[in-house]
Write a protein that binds this DNA or RNA. Structure first.
Lengths: 396, 396
DNA sequence: TGAAGCCGCTGAAAGGATTCATCGTCGGGA
DNA sequence: TCCCGACGATGAATCCTTTCAGCGGCTTCA
């Protein structure tokens, strides 16, 4: 079975909450198709049929129609659209009027076949993650005045980054932003041969793609200094699971941000003669919550928890609050400084590495590449600790 | 100037936070292009040139290459890929082996020209909004086993929904999910003639596109009953600005969720002989925060605030916390039940309308359409009040 | 006045996958 | 042995846009 074919609708509608359906319930072609599992063919076939049956759907106008309407050639219209060289004012006016009259819109698929798709793709490992959202926001802003449209390919459950990146490449996006994905650098370089790539997060260095990283070393140092100065000695570090199995490129090509932060934690603890304690959880806050509860019940709970990112820190905070404790019992520091960290009810100490700036710069780097830059660039964004209420000197 | 042409990179790099740039700074083609402002042409031209200069970039293999490799015709390969009718096991094996050997991936743009793009587009008015995130999560899940890839088109700053929807249509997505956009229903129907559309949120009813709504009436009723039962009388309603100027289709075609919630609020207040007080703010929480501060300083502040959605409610809560007050002073109820509402530090009473379910159903409805359904469907998702700490009986 | 060069525009080819009409082959029944 | 139908595979047409080579007409300069 090749990866592009064959799928079936999972049958049955799961209703965990009442859904009222108005309108038809019967699906026209619900009975098994003659050629086995529902395939894209039958889907597109029946779709076009339905478009006809619902009637009065004039096919959208093409560049040919515009050319006819304006009394010029297809190529001339194309040049007007692309703002290319060699178009008289008169012709431009005629063509633009014709475009207006027909409501013509260039088909991106057709453009992509020869030229550009004017699309920049963002691979986002976790849609709900606020740090990633900041990156998207920054990029959106940077692309506002350009003809480029951003599209986001979210990762499905248990999906690997490379699926989404491939999917973007298949769509012939003009550039790709990949956010700290666990993919083979060599593979990514192969993608980058054809499509400009900016990779955010990992401390990679490549001649083929650009990278943007936060200063994870400095950020983590600041966290540790802050906690130690406050008098904490029993500090636990909570972070996400490392890649399993250990990818062959790990360590060699550059480390993921979380790995760097963890390394700094270990170093600082050992330098102080303290026992490092690192706990790995899933990336969403739920497991961080459960883990923290257990931690609080342990005979000698930590007085401070350094969470690898804010999502984890939020989960940690919820466990602490549920246990009726506060920052005087257990201090918490996160990483990323997502918007909710600033909220007075949360007030989470965190490291600001300006996701918005990262997103903006990522978009810029892609635009530069499209403009012609060929050498790789590495950007590093400074990290700044934002001290808030969640970290305080321990009681005893 | 037509809308598809002409852009320039905004010059100068704004650095509000230190950015360290490693690697080249000079951009190859920074000098003005011969044909005026940098146009997509030159961009793609220089790009391909750079690809050549960096060398060793064999053009990606096509269906033709696979056909040659497997010793069959192009059409045969196409049929294998699409899992279509009339392929012998032997040929399938040969072709799949050839695909494997060449690392062939079908170009989506080319497929879209005749067949399907296997892409479903989501128009998301606000990337950071957690309710919308829940919808995306639900849809991701529903699409996991299908060959369809989801792409998200986020709205740029000050961008209208129709820009993003058009952009998705231009990319020939096979289906569109639009989330409560302020667009003309007639316009949306025109889009829906060619591409299946599911619209989430607005209480529309169309023969051409499907709709999914929450039960905003019931949800708002539950909120008001809850607050009134707790003894609140001075209840202020905070909601987002209505569309300005008033769109010509307002009220006629169906209302936006926020408008329905506000209407219920007004009705209930008036039925109780109380003075309704509605305040409009921007959709992001920041203005809600400022507005609430002012409200708290007023001579007779409300004892409860019913926020039109959770994002606003979070902003309200932050103002209340900053003022050193709590739920006994001012109760807060939101709408959507986003994940952070459950957090013990926030504990926001809210209306759960299951965004995840909405997203899942939206994806399903599109798949049904692609399967052949032609009649429109309306789904309504039940609303359930989740009572939490943020709403409590007033002090006096 | 002739040659050269530029300008504005045009026709045709290219790009990759799908689909339709068509063709060849093989097995089985008469 | 012959014919027919079913099955499998094929070539060509198609989708829409961009790009390239080229073509008149005009200007400029020798």
């Amino acid at each position: 079975m090749n990866p592009f074919s064959g799928f079936t609708l999972s049958e049955g509608r799961i209703e965990c909450q009442p859904v009222y359906r108005i309108g038809n319930t019967a699906v026209t072609s619900a009975e098994p198709q003659p050629d086995g599992p529902l395939s894209p063919v039958s889907a597109s076939a029946s779709r076009s049929a339905s478009a006809q049956s619902s009637g009065a759907s004039p096919r959208p106008s093409t560049i040919q129609d515009v050319a006819r309407e304006a009394g010029v050639s297809r190529a001339a219209v194309s040049k007007v659209i692309r703002n290319a060289y060699g178009v008289s004012d008169k012709m431009r006016a005629q063509v633009e009027e014709a475009i207006e009259r027909l409501g013509y819109r260039p088909r991106v698929a057709a453009r992509a076949m020869r030229g550009a798709s004017f699309t920049l793709g963002f691979e986002i490992p976790q849609v709900g993650n606020d740090f990633l959202t900041m990156i998207v926001d920054g990029a959106t802003e940077a692309l506002a005045e350009t003809p480029y449209q951003m599209i986001i390919a979210p990762l499905g459950r248990d999906q690997k980054s490379d699926v989404a990146i491939n999917s973007l490449a298949d769509r012939q996006v003009d550039g790709i932003v990949a956010i700290s994905p666990r993919v083979d650098p060599a593979w990514l370089e192969r993608i980058a041969e054809r499509t400009p790539v900016v990779m955010i997060g990992r401390h990679d260095r490549s001649d083929r793609y650009d990278t943007i990283t936060g200063d994870d070393r400095s950020g983590a140092e600041q966290v540790m200094s802050h906690l130690v100065e406050q008098g904490h000695r029993r500090i636990t570090h909570l972070t996400i699971h490392p890649s399993r199995p250990e990818p062959p490129w790990a360590g060699q090509a550059g480390d993921e941000p979380h790995v760097v932060r963890t390394a700094v934690y270990r170093d600082r603890m050992q330098a102080l003669g303290l026992e490092p304690s690192v706990i790995h959880t899933l990336f969403d806050g739920s497991e961080a919550h459960a883990t923290t509860r257990k931690l609080l019940d342990s005979p000698e709970p930590p007085t401070a928890i350094f969470a690898g990112n804010d999502t984890l820190a939020i989960g940690v905070l919820s466990a602490i609050a549920e246990a009726g404790l506060d920052e005087r019992d257990v201090s918490v520091v996160g990483y990323d400084d997502i918007p909710i960290a600033r909220h007075p009810l949360v007030s989470l100490t965190s490291v600001d590495q300006s996701g918005v700036l990262m997103g903006r710069e990522a978009a810029r780097l892609l635009l530069e590449r499209l403009e012609g830059r060929t050498e790789a660039v590495q950007l590093q964004i400074a990290a700044t600790l934002r001290e808030r209420r969640s970290s305080a000197p321990p009681r005893c």
